[in-house]
Design a protein around this nucleic acid. Sequence first.
DNA 1: CTCCTTGTAACTTTTACAGTTTCACATTAG
DNA 2: CTAATGTGAAACTGTAAAAGTTACAAGGAG
Lengths: 154, 154
Amino acid sequence: MRVSTRLSDSIHILAFLQIFHGKLPLTSENIAGSVRTSPVVIRRLMSALRKGGLIETVPGSADPRLARPASEISLYDIYLAVEGSDRHLFTIDEKTAPECIVGGNIQATLAEYYHQAEVAAQAKLATVTLQDVLDSILVRQAQKEAARRKDENK
Amino acid sequence: MRVSTRLSDSIHILAFLQIFHGKLPLTSENIAGSVRTSPVVIRRLMSALRKGGLIETVPGSADPRLARPASEISLYDIYLAVEGSDRHLFTIDEKTAPECIVGGNIQATLAEYYHQAEVAAQAKLATVTLQDVLDSILVRQAQKEAARRKDENK
DNA sequence: CTCCTTGTAACTTTTACAGTTTCACATTAG
DNA sequence: CTAATGTGAAACTGTAAAAGTTACAAGGAG
């Protein structure tokens, strides 16, 4: 399974926007530096986020911002914006022999069970907001700095 | 995302074994006919299922069988056997800039949230057994045949 | 023994995604 | 106005995972 890092990178972008807003020029190049990818990849993802109504941007102006508060953007919202609703976690083999009892009925059967599993995962993602991610990041950063100070003083 | 159809095809194989046991020679070629793939692909998947303790086979003999009742094999068992436990539904971008507050902390943060979503999906898969799949397949087949008869009689 | 089958390794093909190049257009500063 | 900077989008290339193929050694059945 080759899986895209689109969701990861998109969450990264949104977190970056929020944390560095007003502190750095929010160019696609600066964001790309943190994600370690090319500016074009960032712009592609931001295009999807914009179409999904999660951010607002002005062409030529390096100042994108969240379209609504971080606490009102769930990871599932981001997933939908950049992966779309027709993206599936599990894949059904579509070419099985229709004349066989198994091959002719397994697709519909698995579609049902796979859907249940996907909905369960999506529901979990929907409970986590961008604000939760920001809080986690800041807590982890504070812990790192505390550990570093302790290390220096011993 | 190029996603593997390993889970789908493996469920297909196990269902095929159970339904056609004693009615057809269960050669990799016959199974491949129903899955519409090559016999080697089938043998590769069956190798994983055998190592995962789900089926028992005898080299040279076309008579593989389930290692335990279909009601005691969950879709998650099959998933584990053919995809492994280090396979993830969501992928984290591992190359983000460690010196950045976001890039340096987002991986651990997302790992936690992604894990929760994966566990939710896996738990759903664990509640479905191969027997459930077999029942669904047989019900769907019966419905198809009923619809066909009704169609012929009108 | 002969034929068929399994099990596995090596190789090729396919395909989805990441990343690059390029260009038109918008904004801002001087 | 114009130069510099940045966005938005399309076309193209590179890459890695999975599917599929070929080949062959070794295990059963008649």
